[in-house]
Design a protein around this nucleic acid. Structure first.
Lengths: 226, 226
DNA sequence: GCAAAAGTGTTCCAGATACACCCATGT
DNA sequence: ACATGGGTGTATCTGGAACACTTTTGC
């Protein structure tokens, strides 16, 4: 604490951080990016992208800034998840973490995988490494929230790129729910929501009939349904 | 802790508080307690019970402690709601508030209404006074959460005293939902949950047939249903 | 006997589920 | 021609919604 600036208060203040659980679907798996920690504590371990909240910075802005800084990813759907404040969760000082859950289509990744600063790794949800702090708990909470929201909101659409086929959309649902769905019932339900529209284009993709392409009617809107 | 102590950090830290929206049903209204602020800012205005998080104190403990200290109420059901961190929400210094939503039966109130420190007032949800900080937004969020949770969890049971009648339980639902419910359908649904049991006792209450008393099978458990 | 809340079943409807075949394409 | 995923309709089931009368008590 020698040095530069000093900020003093008449009563002790905790540090406040944000952490982001960013889900995406990659190679038919639900995955999320983790960042290799360089400093103490938990040096060398993996942790969620995140960091300290600027003194004049909104919490959401902090989450987005840290996510972009550490992983290069921008333009994601963001939702506040939970605030963890157990006094012993950071061995250095009292630290309170506001966790966010985020979703993004796979085609928006890899914008700049390495910005030269920290190592970023993508991990399937069922093959997570040991994680720093209480980040494992936070990921578990985020996953529960995602699964719960699948069937009372349009959150899954946030995984879809600009245009997509109904087959791809169904696959996304099946990956998150870990169970196969009936094709006809799925299409009926999802079209009845009236949130996607056919573009008129087709995608031919292999030795089979081309699929109609769809796009979101309200791309950034996540709504409660039913 | 004399006032002369100083706590210093190499980068600025926000203050962290908790605030509690405590719902209860009083006189057939959904009401919540507010505390008259004595100090700046917003002196004289009403605000949610809450205060600064101790440096070694868990967030939930802080919420419960402040609730008890300012209103005398203990033993409530508590659930984390949302964390507000807009940089301008407190004019003094950067302050981040972790808001909790709480529920309690009316018969647990009035344990010590006045502890001589601050004025406590109960307000019906539709007759709230102007409130300090962004507390009005927090209350709105809490109410939305309560209504949403009514029909996918057993949260409403947290409003019930030790024993109660099915009519009283139905009234609680009707007050929160602001609409009348069908008696037979309500009883079918709530009994099918298998979370309440008849005590065998009756309550005679007026010029009419006595009602069976029920109690919760798992008093402190709030479960997701269906 | 009358007012007032407690208690009790059945019918109906809508939305979810189960299910099988033909279509368009590339090789 | 065949393998591959795309695309379509109907019958059934189930859980929610609507609905009216009898019971027990205090006055």
């Amino acid at each position: 604490m020698n040095g530069l600036k000093n900020f003093h208060y008449t009563h002790p203040h905790p540090a406040v951080t944000t952490d982001v659980v960013l889900f995406s679907i990659r190679e038919a798996r639900l995955e999320l990016p983790l960042v290799r920690r360089t400093g103490q504590p938990f040096a060398g371990m993996w942790g969620l992208p995140g960091g300290f909240v600027g003194i004049d910075e909104d919490l959401e802005s902090c989450a987005l800034r840290e996510l972009e800084h550490e992983t290069g990813i921008t333009g994601v759907y963001l939702e506040q998840l939970h605030t963890s404040g157990r006094p012993d969760r950071d061995p250095r000082e009292r630290a309170i973490s506001v966790a966010y859950c985020a979703l993004t289509p796979a085609d928006r990744l890899q914008i700049k995988t390495m910005n030269g600063e920290k190592e970023v790794g993508w991990f399937a949800l069922e093959r997570l490494p040991p994680m720093a702090f209480d980040h494992a708990e936070i990921v578990t909470m985020a996953h529960q929230r995602l699964v719960a929201k699948l069937d009372y909101s349009t959150i899954a659409f946030q995984f879809m790129p600009e245009t997509f086929t109904l087959g791809e959309l169904q696959t996304v649902y099946e990956i998150i729910l870990r169970e196969p769905l009936d094709k006809r019932n799925f299409r009926k339900r999802v079209l009845a929501l009236d949130r996607i529209a056919a573009t008129g284009e087709l995608r031919r993709n292999g030795n089979h009939r081309p699929a109609r392409l769809y796009r979101l009617k309200f791309p950034d809107k996540v709504e409660i349904i039913k």
